[in-house]
Write a protein that binds this DNA or RNA. Sequence first.
DNA 1: ACAGATATCGAGACTCAATCTCAACACAAG
DNA 2: CTTGTGTTGAGATTGAGTCTCGATATCTGT
Lengths: 160, 160
Amino acid sequence: MREGKQEFAEWLASRKLRVTGERMAVLDEVMRANGHIDIDYLQEQFRKQKRPVSRATIYRTLSHLVQSGLVQKVLTGEGQARYEKMYGRQHHDHMICLGCGEIIEFTNDEIERLQDWVCHKKRFTIVTHTLQIKGFCEKCSAQKASVEGGATDHRRHGRN
Amino acid sequence: MREGKQEFAEWLASRKLRVTGERMAVLDEVMRANGHIDIDYLQEQFRKQKRPVSRATIYRTLSHLVQSGLVQKVLTGEGQARYEKMYGRQHHDHMICLGCGEIIEFTNDEIERLQDWVCHKKRFTIVTHTLQIKGFCEKCSAQKASVEGGATDHRRHGRN
DNA sequence: ACAGATATCGAGACTCAATCTCAACACAAG
DNA sequence: CTTGTGTTGAGATTGAGTCTCGATATCTGT
Ligand SMILES: [Mn+2]
Ligand SMILES: [Mn+2]
Ligand SMILES: [Zn+2]
Ligand SMILES: [Zn+2]
C-alpha cells in the first residue's frame, strides 16, 4: 500500500469525508514526488496517466492533505505555491537559490530552540514558523563570480 | 525635510530616474506610517489629502523604494503584500498573530549568526532571509484559552 | 445487492492582487 | 519653442486560487 494512504483515509473518515479515487490519486502523486512540487506538475502527471483530475479538486485535496499534516505548503513568494510530503519526515527550513530555483533543506535545533525562547519572552504562542533564506547555491555563486570577474556589474540584484 | 527624501532622490538620480511629486508622496506616506501598511492604506491616505496617486504608480514607486533599501516588502501569505520603512532601522523578523493580525517584531543575533553558519556549511551565499512565526499574541492566547475552557473544541485550527 | 441520502467532481465563471499598455503629459536640454 | 525621453493614470490583462452548481460517485442501512 502507498505511503500515507492509511493515514489519509483515517483522517478523512474522522471528518466524515469520503475516500475517493481523486483524493487518493493526489495523495499518491505528492508522495511519489521527491521535491517541492506545484499544481502544474500534478496536473501534468495526471494527464500522462490518462487520469485527469480537475484543478479545483487538486486544490481542495491539497488543502485537506495540509490540514492532515501529511503535506506541507511552501510559499516561495514567486508564482504558485509549492507542496512537499511531510509524512515520515521532520520539520525543516529552506534555502532558495535565486539563480536556479533549487530548494535546499536544512535543520538547526539551536535555531528552533531560540525561536521558542524569543516567543516565550513575548508571551507568543507558536503555531508554525517559516524560515526561508534566499541567495545563491554553490554552483550559481561560482557562475556569478566568474561573470562579474571583469567589469563589476551592479545591475539586477533584487527582483521586485 | 522628510526622512529619506534625500536618499531616495539620490538613488533615483543614480538610475537616471526622475524625482517626481508622486514618488515623493509615496515615500512620505510610507515614512509617516509607523506599521506594516498595504496599498489600500496608501490610496486612502492620498484620497484624504486630495492628492490621488494611481495604483500603478504606487506599485511602481514601492518597487523602487524596496530596491533602494529604504522600504521592505513583507509577504504574510494572506491578501496583499505589506510594506514598512527600513530607513534608519535595522533588520528584524516577525511574529504574526493568527487571531488579531498583529505583527510583532523581534531580533535575535544568535539566530542570525546560526543562519550564517548553516549557509556557510552548505556553501550558500545569503542575499536575504525571512523568519515568520505564526501563532497567537498574548491577548489572543488568553481569549482562546477561555473560549476552550468548557468543551474542548478541536475545529478550525488552520486556515486553508 | 439495492436505494436513498449526501458528499464530491468538473467545467467554467469568478475574485483579487499585481502587472501591463499606451496615449496624454511633464520636464530637461538645446 | 522644440525635441527627446521619462512618467502618469485609466483601464485592460494576467494568473493563482476559489466558488457555483448540475451531474456523478460514495456511503449507510436494509
Ligand atoms: Mn522542504
Ligand atoms: Mn517589521
Ligand atoms: Zn542555484
Ligand atoms: Zn492577537
